[in-house]
């Protein structure tokens, strides 16, 4: 244990954040303002998610941190170490073993279960910001459920690209009420938002907003009747584990333009390979 207070933040601050979280849980999809603190990391590195995680952590928790699905990237590693140092909690890379998962831009492939908490790092929490720069006006629009503008954004997409080209940060409507920005997760993950047994919490540090989806909340991706929402992914199987149902990253492997597709969720891929599943290049590259 260190000289830091448990999970870095002082108890008053954690209480304040918990109140914001509880309010968010009570009003799914509603952006609750909170007094975001300075954290020992720059904005954009997950200060919102870290504060939410800090407020939720107990000494018995098992923490997993992923960045774009991977446990071993700089951002994930440094946040995991931060909580190891300041809270002394156990950490894991296995989705099923974790009680709290902080994530940047992905939802794990392994289905979450009741009792788990998924904490999202959010850069811009306001889904209407793209077309309406005034905060006073966007708040009023949420208040009055004036969400036509969200469809204008999708209309513009189709008019310009022939299809809804928004592939991440894809706007959703929560329980038929608030339109919510799901953070920059790929739209492939959007269906996992809905009816999820885990508690999903969203923290935006710079923008000082927290919002939440309680377990089993209905979340619908916005679309048009004649351009329905599609949770798209690359038309490949994972080259390492052969999975056909997971979100893939494209990796350039040499200067000749060769490439491979691998699971973005490193834990999922590793677990499958440990079970003996092998993809197209699984033998050589692993």
């Amino acid at each position: 244990m260190s000289d830091y207070n448990f999970a870095y933040l002082d108890e008053q601050t954690k209480r304040m954040i918990r109140r914001a979280i509880l309010k968010g849980v009570a009003i799914p999809g509603y952006q609750v303002p909170f007094a975001s603190r300075e954290m020992p990391m720059p904005y954009g590195w997950g200060t919102g998610g870290v504060q939410v995680t800090a407020a939720c952590l107990t000494p018995d928790d098992v923490l997993k941190v992923i960045d774009q699905g991977a446990d071993d990237t700089t951002n994930a590693v440094s946040i995991r170490r931060f909580f190891q140092k300041t809270a002394g909690v156990e950490v894991t890379e296995a989705t099923a073993e974790a009680t709290i998962i902080q994530t940047r831009h992905r939802i794990p492939e392994t289905p979450l279960t009741e009792g788990q908490i998924l904490v999202y790092q959010v850069p811009i929490p306001e889904p209407l910001r793209f077309l309406e720069p005034r905060e006073t006006e966007t708040r009023r629009m949420h208040e009055l459920e004036e969400y036509g503008l969200m469809h204008v954004k999708l209309y513009e997409d189709i008019a310009r690209h022939g299809t809804i080209a928004t592939s991440y940060d894809y706007p959703v409507r929560v329980e038929g009420r608030y339109v919510m920005d799901p953070s920059p997760i790929p739209k492939f993950d959007n269906p996992k938002l809905s009816g999820n047994p885990a508690l999903q919490l969203f923290g935006a540090g710079r923008e000082q907003r927290i919002y939440a989806l309680p377990p089993y909340t209905q979340v619908v991706s916005l679309d048009f009747e004649d351009h329905p929402f599609v949770a798209s992914k690359a038309e490949h199987d994972c080259d390492l584990c052969g999975a056909s149902d997971s979100y893939l990253d494209e990796v350039i492997t040499d200067d000749q333009g060769n490439r491979m597709f691998v699971c973005s969720d490193t834990d999922y891929c590793r677990t499958r390979r440990a079970a003996g599943l092998v993809g197209r290049l699984g033998g050589e590259a692993a």
Partner: peptide, 27 residues
């Protein structure tokens, strides 16, 4: 007008605001 939105999007906004959800019909 919304200067950053296409002419079609500008005209369609009120339709979408009152619940139109068919792109072809809006267009």
């Amino acid at each position: 007008l919304r200067m950053g939105v296409s002419a079609g999007g500008n005209v369609g906004e009120r339709l979408m605001a009152v619940g139109a959800r068919n792109y072809g019909a809006i267009r």
